[in-house]
Design a protein around this nucleic acid. Structure first.
Lengths: 196, 196
DNA sequence: CACAGTTTAGTTGTCGGCCGACAAGTCGAT
DNA sequence: ATCGACTTGTCGGCCGACAACTAAACTGTG
């Protein structure tokens, strides 16, 4: 049933994830969904937990930052690329929900998405801090400012992927971003897009 | 009435832009809105036209690319910053609609937003092409790939601005992005075209 | 083994709220 | 008297929530 919900979100947005639709797709009837998850909110929570657990497994939200700061940052981006490659449906549902958090007037959803989003950005901030400390990132970069931009690029790539699925290859774009991070921030003399 | 609609979108998302709410806020009653705009779709179109015209005036979607390629690109980003500073409500409504285009299952809205989004990205692509041609941008950059990333950063900054208004200053971030474009893409003395 | 009671999975029925659409009507200025 | 600006009434659709019902599987007991 959660699978059905994820598919539906990916296909038609949060609003098309209706009890009836989920029941139909999962082979049950509408009432059961309510019984299982209690409410719409419960359903959304179930979907979120499912996707987050997968992302954690893939280390896209690393709890421990091993390797150099720059490397752990690249690991995160590449884990996202992995997920985009292996389970695009889940990532699609996640991003649809993230954008729905802004498009719809649902403070509860917005809170949940803020938690996820901020967790990722702070993960990147910490990676920058470690990177500056261990020398894998150029001295002088502002971790907060740069992580804002890197996160922005990630979100924006996902946005374009969802808006123009045929034109934007999220996996490629993320991998390219990962290598950009190397050339931009590694304290050699080379630069590339994203930030200063 | 369009003003009321823009405010409502900015405050509570597209779904809270209801005929009743607009009527209330504009001092009229619900029925008039239908009479004026014909349908919900007509209303959305009216809002879109309003915002786009403003953006065109500010040259955020330049028709002519004057100055060097890199400069016209920076002009575009700075025009966005201008708009974010002067009419944050309009920009907020625009971005809410852009994210709604993904969150809701509304092909008509998605089409309109795609038009806008692609127009901006292609504007940036062209700026890159001019930049490579006139020497204001390093040789070797791929205009399509780089414009994808720059646009992603712009969209992602707007996303974070809407998700965490208190934490993210869109004007600052866009201006910083503009200066980043200079340091990243302006040809220095010796550099190697890394990836991409 | 039989059987009754109970839990569990799943169903249909239905209510209330919200919203878009439209029709009909009101009011005032020219 | 008509026209345009504006209002109220109302219908139909959609959805979430919940209650009431059915059936099947599960349990313990003698």
């Amino acid at each position: 049933m959660v699978d059905a919900a994820i598919d539906l979100i990916g296909e038609g947005g949060l609003r098309s994830m209706t009890f009836v639709a989920i029941g139909d797709r999962a082979g049950y009837s509408r009432g059961l969904v309510t019984a299982r998850f209690g409410s719409k909110q419960g359903l959304v929570d179930a979907v979120i937990h499912r996707v987050w657990n997968r992302l954690r497994e893939l280390r896209a939200l690393p709890d421990t930052h091993d390797g150099s700061g720059l490397e752990s940052m690249r690991t995160l981006v590449e884990a996202l690329a992995d997920h985009a490659k292996n389970e695009p449906g889940e990532l699609r549902a996640l991003y649809v929900m993230m954008f729905a958090a802004i498009a719809e007037d649902d403070e509860a959803l917005a809170d949940r998405m803020r938690v996820f989003h901020v967790a990722m950005r702070e993960s990147i901030t910490i990676a920058f801090e470690h990177g500056v400390a261990d020398g894998s990132v150029r001295a002088g970069v502002d971790p907060a400012a740069e992580s804002l931009k890197v996160t922005a690029t990630i979100r924006g790539l996902a946005y374009q992927w969802l808006l123009e699925p045929d034109r934007v290859d999220l996996v490629d774009a993320l991998l390219e971003l990962s290598s950009d991070l190397e050339s931009i921030y590694r304290p050699l003399r080379a630069e590339r897009p994203g930030a200063s």
